[in-house]
Design a protein around this nucleic acid. Structure first.
Lengths: 326, 326
DNA sequence: CTGAAAGCGCTAACAG
DNA sequence: CTGTTAGCGCTTTCAG
């Protein structure tokens, strides 16, 4: 593999001259430039990015940590992170943290090891404590980590919209399925609001907790089955899209009609919600915007700028499906 | 940020000594080691990975190119690629090539620019021609690119299994939905076999072609609608999981019963297939194995080894759902 | 306009 | 066992 020195030698110029035509800066005579360009072509030269990165003290990589890449929510957000970053010359380094909380600490060390220039943290960060308030280019994605700027979705509104949808559809006895409690997560706020709104209207609210925020449909089926067995009179359900689909499946199997007997509101707005039958009424998170905004935020931090606010709150909306009355 | 020189200076030793304790090689007196270790602690030292990478001429990154990260098939495969790579000290650099065929060339250049050590190519590679037979650490994932080793799924068997399932369920007039033709893809082989098997049993096969291999559910719905309008007598459908779900939705809306009137076999075995209602009979691709195998293959190439075969073929199987008779 | 030289942070001979 | 030195491939002063 030809190096800059090989090019210089063959072209009969100094390496610095080659460097100058490479980066298009400094003065270089037209014919010298041509000669160098030609030699590069001949030698099929490609600059070694690692070497320039060492000099510039950057890598053009952004680490993106998520609990599960295969979950449609994260997969979609990452798609848009990648897209935005790409337009700015950065690349995404993936880190799936599922079942490996210590991987998070390790991943954050990537910043100090100069493996990545910044981090978008979409995972539960137990070990991130020591990096708080350090003004490192790290942003939290859809979760609140003290001392880190975050890009979140208005989950309070999400919870309220879900409650209103079920209320409007005439529910009197609902159940909501919540994430794993131990993982203190801002997004779970929606369940507090949901509960408040429902109760203020005299509706009975039962809460079921998942054992773990894992993406495992069979597990969801189990939870749904147990819930329906324990509370046969439930007439409304509020849960993540995928959990909601488990309920749909079970309810249909048991011959219950949707939405006549039971109404369901999902959360996330993944493609699952629109592709299933009946299509799920769901609270949609703006995944594209979330990704783009998070990407822009780290980029800004890397550029030495500061974010105007510690929290950027994105809007949610309800997408009407066939599991509630419109 | 403290460098190795700072540590050496403060500890009163040479940089090479620090380097030795860092890498645990060469002889270092126990107390010298302690002193150095202590100083590292004090200075909160972290080695600069870019510098060592420059020396070692590697990066520990593997580029993974896919047409669409958000597609559940790719998202899942990537999850397992990441997992396997992680265990070997490598990280995944993502590249979504959707609607940007020139990004592929650029991405392949990453190899020569020393941005990544290897590439797993899960995208349609129009521009990869010049890299053929170069013995670079590049493997094709679920597609055949001449001159590149590939890890594929036995799509012929997949097509046959699908045909047999529909045959067994009594179909006499089926339609199969194929990917975009222009993108010459090995995985489309299944449709040839499918067609052959069906026809050899005297079954009428119609083929519908998608305009683009894009992941867009609304588009799938349109295709399904047009297909059902054009061929109202269809009693069997063979399509990707997501396309199959569009058919399910439309058929149910039109009051057709599944599988009594129309039977459906999906392809991919994504989580969509099991979470929808009725659950989809589908040909499942071994996504976990696919990811692990591809990762191991690039790693092997990077290690200078050669693969025993140019093609590694993984098995598929049928997962029985409720859209066919069992 | 161009070349020589120093240096980014780290590793690996090679002498002591 | 430890320090000195050269060098990975590139960029950037600094002199001409």
């Amino acid at each position: 593999m030809a190096s800059i020195r090989d090019v210089a030698q063959k072209a009969g110029v100094a390496v610095s001259t080659v460097s100058r035509v490479l980066n298009n800066n400094g003065y270089v005579a037209a014919d010298t430039r041509q000669k160098v360009l030609h030699t590069m072509e001949e030698l099929d030269y490609m600059p070694n990015e690692v070497a320039r990165n060492l000099f510039y003290n950057r890598t053009n990589f952004i680490g993106v940590m998520v609990p599960d890449i295969a979950h449609p929510f994260y997969a979609t957000v990452i798609k848009y992170i990648e897209k935005e970053l790409y337009h700015h010359g950065y690349k995404v380094v993936l880190c799936n943290t599922v079942e490996k909380s210590d991987r998070e600490k390790e991943f954050v060390d990537m910043l100090r090891r100069h493996i990545v220039d910044g981090i978008i943290m979409g995972a539960h960060s137990l070990e991130i404590e020591k990096y708080r308030n350090l003004n490192l280019p790290v942003v939290a994605l859809d979760r609140i980590i003290e001392g880190l700027p975050n890009i979140c979705v208005d989950h309070c509104k999400g919870g309220r919209l879900a409650a209103e949808a079920l209320l409007h559809s005439g529910c009197r006895n609902v159940v909501q399925v919540m994430g794993y409690r131990k993982v203190q997560s801002y997004s779970e706020q929606r369940h507090i609001i949901f509960s408040e709104v429902m109760k203020s209207h005299g509706v009975q609210v039962n809460s079921v907790e998942l054992a773990w925020n894992l993406f495992d449909f069979q597990e969801y089926i189990n939870v749904a089955r147990k819930t329906l067995d324990d509370m046969p009179d439930v007439d409304g359900i509020f849960a993540t899209d995928m959990v909601a689909m488990a309920f749909i499946k079970l309810l249909l199997e048991r011959g219950r009609s949707i939405p006549e007997e039971v109404r369901i509101v999902g959360y996330d707005g993944t493609s699952y919600a629109e592709s299933c039958s009946p299509s799920l009424t769901t609270i949609v998170q703006p995944m594209a915007e979330l990704g783009k905004t998070a990407a822009d935020a780290v980029l800004k931090l890397i550029g030495g700028q500061t974010l105007e606010t510690d929290q950027i709150l994105l809007d949610v909306e309800l997408r009407q499906g066939s599991t509630t009355f419109s």
